[in-house]
Nucleic acid binder design. Structure first.
Lengths: 324, 324
DNA sequence: AGTCGTTACGATGCCCGTAAGGATA
DNA sequence: TATCCTTACGGGCATCGTAACGACT
């Protein structure tokens, strides 16, 4: 058994069982992968992939287990490399952050400013995507951190730590009827077409629930992943915006009116996550702490030891998180 | 980085930094290991081993971390092999049990009888040793299970599951003064020379504590690791035996008198343990259940998920264990 | 002086890449 | 028909083992 063989089977799965595509991504030849996969299967005496003729069709049950362990191993191989880097060049390295547009645009800039100031030699890479893409990036090790709010069920392979709570605001143009009200009821809001996040980003959670609890159904006429896009369409008069309060910039958005909606929708919690069992560089601990000051290194290490998000939630049950 | 390189550094540590000895154990040449170790160090850019001239003297701090992760990886490589074997030959394989003489002699025979009857094709290997040897065998993966009572602090890398409680008995020859008493006090017992387990086996825990709580100090004139040896010396009149109640066989020991001592010494708990993160074969789950019927596969899997012996103790806090 | 790790060197064997073959959708 | 995996073959390279060297205890 060789590490490359494990890498190959893992990547073949990541490439939807397409060996040719895998070969291209790994900058190697396709027969090489094919042969190594077969050799591993021969050595283990089991099929990892099911085949119909010469096409890989599915992963066998045994293959599933093998691949899970292989991914653990590959993660730990990365950890070894990180340990070495930590000792050779403590303030140098890469930091890959996967997050949503909203976080990248409104929550992170200050943090990143502080970070690159402290660690100018660390290369920072931001990956934007849907919650499921974010989860996958982090789970595969392509991203060091996942920062996200929704769809926590996607993050089984990750340690997720709560960072802060945030609420939503209603956003309308200044000449909109709602602009006069300081306190909007859910029933009033339901009378207007809604402009908010796409399903899976924020909808299907607190927004949906807020309406449903009042027996109402929001009429979402437009949805997008980024607050900037949403605000643009609010400006076009397409509807009433329901967006994260932090994504309203008083300077830029002075043509809009924001009405706090924390009484209509329960707060959400943004979390930062990383792969279970992965070694974190010193600057990674610092990044976490810059982002969420209560997550000091000892706290993070304690949570890592729990290894289970249910237990971690309990650990932070009594922690007072900031509200943004 | 190659798996062999990780194997090499791990084994070099296991062989007390003696590369020559490591080479012999691995049936390979000594320069081969030396070179691979160096190549790994070069690739990582760090020293794993400290050297004085050409001798390996110690493990560097970075090396310590690397070796820990390497051991995790090697354990998971074993897991992959086991997964494969589980699918190719479910009722065939090896079972290595590390335990103390007492367990091997009195607690295990029936269990093993049941087991080899159910799994005749599984090769069983028993390893006897001190608690610390047992812990090491299991932690290195040389043994699948550690079965032991004492020195739980040694078992940090293992998942330890409670199996049963047991008490001690006082054992004397029939003509001994104590043989007449049905209820012996700790003060009475303290007047006689004691024959019991060596330090670290059972002493230094409940026996020591039982005396100390009464402000007494036992006078241990002879100690050994096995109850059989202890009984032999009780027969020689060397002293009063204090041994595990289960190690008294009414048939064989009809020349001795056993007096229950559960009121003098708190019960002890025998546990079965295995490496964290290791894949268990189907027959291994069955072995555990044969040994401790309450440890069914779902229960064991639940405990494995906790990964922490403190949490596991809580999990079993309310479980009623058998007393032997 | 003996044990031990490093260096040097030669041979085996593995892995990779190109090219051709055959099956599936 | 186009895509895709497998087989076949040849070149390069890494690994391993033997032998000699140098260093520490």
């Amino acid at each position: 058994m060789k590490l490359q063989q494990l890498r190959y089977i893992s990547e073949v799965v990541n490439n939807h069982l397409n060996v040719s595509a895998t070969a291209e991504n790994l900058y190697t030849s396709q027969p090489g992968i094919s042969k190594q996969v077969r050799m591993l299967e021969d050595e283990l005496g089991i099929q990892i992939f099911g085949r119909s003729g010469k096409h890989l069709t599915h992963v066998t049950p045994a293959g599933e287990q093998v691949i899970n362990i292989a991914n653990d191993i590959l993660g730990k191989v990365d950890s070894i490399k990180r340990v070495a880097e930590e000792h050779t060049q403590p303030d140098r390295g890469d930091l890959n952050i996967a997050t949503t547009d909203t976080q990248a645009r409104y929550a992170l800039p200050n943090v990143i400013g502080t970070f690159i100031n402290r660690y100018p030699k660390v290369n920072l890479h931001m990956h934007q995507g849907t919650p499921s893409q974010i989860s996958e990036l982090a789970a595969r090790g392509d991203a060091d951190f996942a920062i996200a709010t929704e769809a926590m069920h996607l993050y089984h392979d990750l340690i997720m730590l709560p960072c802060y709570h945030w609420n939503r605001s209603i956003v309308v143009k200044k000449d909109h009827p709602l602009a006069q009200l300081s306190n909007v009821s859910i029933e009033t809001l339901a009378q207007y077409p809604i402009v908010t996040y796409v399903f899976g980003f924020d909808r299907a959670s607190e927004i949906e629930r807020g309406f449903n609890q009042a027996g109402l159904e929001p009429r979402v006429v437009f949805s997008a992943t980024s607050a900037d896009v949403l605000k643009t369409y609010v400006r076009l008069g397409l509807g009433v915006g329901v967006i994260a309060s932090m994504s309203i910039d008083p300077k830029i958005d002075d043509d809009l009116v924001a009405i706090d909606a924390s009484h209509l929708f329960a707060y959400s919690t943004t979390k930062i996550g990383f792969r279970k069992g992965s070694f974190l560089r010193g600057y990674m601990y610092d990044f976490i702490e810059f982002f969420a000051p209560h997550l000091t290194r000892p706290v993070v290490e304690q949570a890592m030891a729990l290894r289970d998000n249910t237990l971690i939630e309990k650990m932070f049950a009594t922690t007072k998180l900031p509200i943004r």
